[in-house]
Amino acid sequence: MKKILYVIIGVLVIIQFIPANLPEVSSDNPNDLLLNNPDIKVDVKLILKTSCYDCHSNETYYPWYSYVAPISFLVSRDTREGREELNFSEWTTYKKSDMAGLLDDISEEVSEGEMPMKIFTIIHRDAVLSDNEKEIVVSWADDFTESLFE
């Protein structure tokens, strides 16, 4: 019984030496959505920053435990994949049609409760979206899409 415990501790110690390669953080993002669209309302801005920006921007905040393996591996993968799908820090580099596609994704995923991901909101309780907040995001996404083509 003690042996098993030692093995588990041993493995946990060893995996700390495997680099997790957490995606880099940058606070200087000239192509950022919010920076380039000052008309976006404060309530929308706050929701995006609190519930989305950790994975969908270069402004990821890594709490201490995100440096501890194996959590670091999960955080690393989810942040990388999140940025790949949609990176608000790179917003103005997207084609207008792709912006529309991404905004449609936002509208779908948020209204279906697919985003933010459960694994994220388990720990980040402040990222949970109420029905009202979902509605705010969805109607912003839909209106913002149309405004791109006016």
């Binding site: 792709d98 529309a100 149309e146 405004s147 083509f149």
Partner: peptide, 10 residues
Amino acid sequence: TGKLVGKLSK
């Protein structure tokens, strides 16, 4: 228009 472009982009 915006919604339609979004769907086509996807």
